[in-house]
Amino acid sequence: MDGDSEGFIELDGIEKVFDVRRRAGLLRRERHQVRAVDGLSFRVARGEMVGYIGPNGAGKSTTIKMLTGILTPSAGRLRVAGIDPQRERTRLARRIGVVFGQRTTLWWDLPLIDSYRLVHRMYRIPDKRYQENLDRCVELLELGELLDVPVRQLSLGQRMRGDIAAALLHDPEVLYLDEPTIGLDVISKARVREFLRDLNAERRTTVLLTTHDLTDIEQLCQRVMVIDHGRLVYDGALTGLHEVGESERTLVVDLERELPPVELAGARVVKVEGPRQWLAFPASASAAPLVARIAAEYPLVDLSVREPDIESVIARMLSRRQIPEPAGPTPL
């Protein structure tokens, strides 16, 4: 963090408690309180790009829903661009963009361009501005040939790019992305990430993204927040998270023939299968020197680097930390 006390997104002691009724027996119902978000405080400065991650059910989407004005917090103070999302939902809506990874907001049976025309008019975007933004999105997200195609005929990756463009035509100051690369092919993923990086650099759009894909975070976010059981358990750089979690990346090497396990300082062999070997090394270390040494000392045919997945990083981090008893359901 840049020590920005005037946060663009500000949360102070935000709580969200759900009443859950469960059937217990034929007619009896038990009420439980579930603390989805439990005293969350953080600040995000304008122009930051932050990864917001955590296990399923940790309170990620509940937080995003409060930030976008969908849900109202049970307690605490919340401001986005100086606006209280709970009280001024529609005013906030004009200044934020939201992309829900799994559900499109595009019009299924109509050409893609029609969805954009609706955004143009609904958000009252000045014509010149709209045209500039549209041109830019079309160019960078390569939507040119898709504009006249009905949305139902688009592939998942094309639709996601279309959705991202739709969320940006009104120049939102904050963009919330929920799993923006889920289910996309490698090329689409790369394109989406590049676009987001440019957007953040050129327009200083603040971006908050939730994802299960560690590469998203690595390539996009200077800062990561990890939430678990409704609390912030980590806030800092991704490299720090790797160290905290002691996570490891894996180097998969294909040798010319079957050989005894590779001996290399800074890496250990975790698996051998014929000529293929798996070497684990700390995620914070660089792969390049390792690769150079293997190439020099062994008959190397091919190799690839596998990133640790985000769940295992978090899981390792959580198991290492002595976290207090999780705030599970407490009977009333």
Binding site: K65, G69, I70, T90, A93, R94, F100, R103, M122
Partner: peptide, 10 residues
Amino acid sequence: TLDTLLVRPA
């Protein structure tokens, strides 16, 4: 899908 309606300015 009601949530998608709540983030629009209408």
